[in-house]
Simulated assay, not measured.
Amino acid sequence: MVNIIGVSVVVFGLMIYFVRSRDLAFAELADMNVALVNSQAQLIQAEKMASLGTLTAGIAHEVNTPIGVINSNADISERCIEKIVGAMERCGSIAELESDDQLKRSVQALQKTNRATRECSNRISQLVGSLKNFSRMDEAASQRVDLHEGIDSALNLIQHELKDRIDVVKEYGDLPRINCHVSELNQVFMNILRNAAEAIEGKGRITIRSSAAAGQVSVCIEDTGVGMRPDQVQRVFDPSFTRKGSRVRAKTGLFSSYQTVQKHDGEIKIESELGKGTAVTVVLSSTG
Rank of each mutant, 00 (worst) to 15 (best):
E98T: 03
T56M: 12
K244P: 01
L185F: 08
G150E: 11
I151N: 04
G58S: 14
A212K: 01
G253A: 05
M1A: 08
E267F: 09
R235L: 08
V11F: 08
N133L: 09
L284H: 14
S257R: 05
K83R: 11
N191Q: 09
V19D: 11
I4Q: 14
D23F: 05
Q232K: 03
G253Y: 05
Q159T: 01
S72W: 04
E201Q: 06
N71W: 05
A197V: 02
V188D: 00
I4T: 15
V182C: 04
M137R: 07
V236F: 15
A141H: 09
V2E: 11
A74D: 04
G202D: 09
K48N: 10
A196C: 12
D238Y: 13
N38T: 11
D146E: 07
I200G: 06
A212V: 00
N114W: 00
N73K: 00
L274C: 10
T117Q: 00
A141E: 08
L52P: 10
Q40A: 11
K251S: 07
N179M: 14
I166N: 00
Q102V: 14
N114I: 01
D167C: 02
C80Y: 00
V10S: 14
E271N: 13
V261L: 09
D23H: 05
V169H: 11
I124P: 14
S39I: 08
A213K: 07
L254A: 11
R177M: 12
A199K: 08
D23C: 09
V10K: 12
S93N: 12
L110E: 04
Y17G: 02
